[in-house]
Design a protein around this nucleic acid. Structure first.
Lengths: 220, 220, 220, 220
DNA sequence: TATGAATGAGTGTTCATTCAT
DNA sequence: GATGAATGAACACTCATTCAT
């Protein structure tokens, strides 16, 4: 049943792939460019990064870039596509039906920690999604995969009598999921001074709000 | 007591003010530039808008721009500062202590509607806040004013026994407020196909989650 | 009857005209660029001329170029279109029906002299017509206007019994016209050492071949 | 007497020869490059062809090119030199002194057909002769060999009383030869829509103009 | 002999900004 | 106040050529 999540329209699949370099040296160079680009984007932002900045950091000449990518944008997409793709794959935490609160806490904590570690990529996505339809799409796909997982949990909860019947699972999933997402945004992207809590505490609070918010008041 | 909200660091106040034009004609021209810029930013994004695009749309020569602004960025800040400033002033909906659910619903709906109407400005903020510290600051200020209002409500609720005592009001305020904000983001900025609900229904659901999430189960 | 020659598809008319500069200064600058370009193209060829060469020779900064033209190619077309257009207008030498030999000599001499004076533009055309369809077209149009004039003369000659009836006027016009054109090509474009005759002598010989070649042997 | 035609300055002889590859495989590769280049030049023009285009079409790596040629220009010269050299050798059609008209017709037709078959190479020559002195020279040499053959015929004609004594043989040869050359240019290089006659008919008309143009009116 | 990775000078083009009118 | 011409730094991208394997 989980197979439905293997979206054939997945992020990476949609890229206009230029075939990978044949030699090992070429593959190493391509990788070096990607890594250098990620660092440059993090330091100076996407707009603030020139192609030459990337190649310089990678210890390459300017021209080398164009053997592997057509444009700065293509690097951006390669980086983000791979990242969002990895989210598809890695977002598997076991769900304990007997203890939803624990599961929510666990999932939320993992999510926040993952976000924190990759905050530079989220920042990159925020900087570019408005002007790049492809970024917008692959990111939104990832987001909805995340929401759909919550939605399925809510439905299971309704079936088990743990979740109120009047809850609209799709909408609530977006709202509940958005809670953690927006928190991460404020904390790790905006880096707002006003939002600096311990992640475990945040996960606890999210879990409490969630359970209370949708819970039937029945056995939880 | 509301005086605390009159932030001396308020958005508009922080702008490096060039004094307004003396003549009425000058003021009209300045305004025309601002309006043209907002349209251009909406159509082509901030990065995609050249100063000449703005003056052309305003029916002016390129040189005219520099009589009123030093740079495109200054226009951006003038537009966003004024907008976020207006949020400070307009966000006053009466709070009915006897019916928190109604108040949350009402406030949320107003928020979403206001977001929807000014979605172009939120988009503009999303495009620029990462590369422009001033945008980041004035936007984050506005956001926290919003969160602090929620926080105060929660504290009042705790005092009245309506809100569980173990709720961390500051954190929960951010989480609950973020729920609506993230929804608006998905719906009006990302314009995600997967997020298209009736705003009233969203407000209802937000209210339900909210009340359930923090409610003491006592008289609500 | 001559109005038929006013080809509405004329060269200059087909150009994607960017409107001329409004101010006198602007018009002078545009003209300076055209003149500088013509010299550069003459000295270094079209391919050997960089846009910066043009602006430097015109005493302008590089950026100035783009206020008046979108590309080097546009300058090329402006120069050649105007030139071939002027050929349309200037190619009017009176025809003396009583002395065709004289008329041919006269017309040929004018043609060769005009070619010689503008040899740089013909060279420019030869360098570019194969890669630029517009150059090919406007030049071919000019050439055929030239051929059609000969064709009309031949038809008049046939009507007057001066030209053999079995002469195919259209084909012969191209062949006879081509004689002078190819001579000019060798002499002024190729600058072949083997082709250096006095132009008056060439005109004489062309006339003799022409009259003999198509003449009926009747009263000429 | 024909020895005069063995031009010691002959085209191919003037090339800065890099010795041919030793192995059979090497010779095949070199030939493959030449053939690929000819096709590329035909399809995209000389300017529009990159060295990589050539090697790709030849099924080789980019680096392979430099084992056989130093530059794109050298390939160009190799192709054109060989072609114009072959013209030297092949342009031998028997001359029937008793029937000059037939001979002219025959020679002209062969010339036009040969031009038509190798139109791509003539186009290549037209694209490059202005910027490449070597192309200019080897082509002009070929052209003048062609003219000199006509000139000799005219002299023989004068000796035989078939050609008017006042004809300047050298000049007339260029003019008469130019007639066919210019026709071929219009038809096969410019590909002008206005010039599409049957080649046999063109040869007929050329012959008629030629005989009439220089003929003494004596026994022809 | 052949490969394909790497180089870097060269050039077109954009666009914020200044300035004379 | 307004115009539009002029500037020039900045950057993307190309491609002939070299070289290690």
């Amino acid at each position: 049943m989980e197979k439905l999540e293997v979206d054939p329209q997945s992020a990476a699949a949609a890229m206009p792939k230029r075939e990978l370099p044949r030699t090992a040296k070429g593959r190493r160079t391509r990788q070096a460019i990607l890594e250098a680009a990620r660092i440059c984007f993090d330091e100076a932002g996407y707009t603030g990064t020139r192609i030459q900045d990337i190649t310089e950091r990678a210890g390459l000449s300017l021209g080398a870039f164009y053997r592997y990518f057509d444009s700065r944008r293509e690097v951006l997409l390669a980086i983000l596509a791979e990242f969002f793709d990895s989210l598809y794959k890695s977002s598997r935490s076991p769900w304990r039906a007997d203890d939803p609160g624990h599961s929510v806490r666990e999932t939320t904590l993992l999510y926040l920690e993952g976000y924190s570690v990759n905050a530079d990529l989220y920042r990159l996505a925020y900087e570019t999604f408005l002007t790049d339809p492809d970024v917008n799409r692959i990111w939104d796909d990832a987001r909805h995969m995340f929401y759909r997982r919550i939605e399925r949990s809510l439905r299971r909860g309704q079936a088990a009598g743990l979740v109120r019947d009047d809850v609209d699972c799709a909408l609530s999933a977006a709202l509940l999921g958005g809670m953690a997402e927006q928190y991460a945004f404020s904390a790790f992207v905006v880096r707002s001074a006003g939002i600096a809590f311990d992640l475990a505490k945040v996960a606890d609070e999210v879990s409490a709000l969630w359970i209370g918010g949708v819970g039937s008041g029945g056995p939880n």
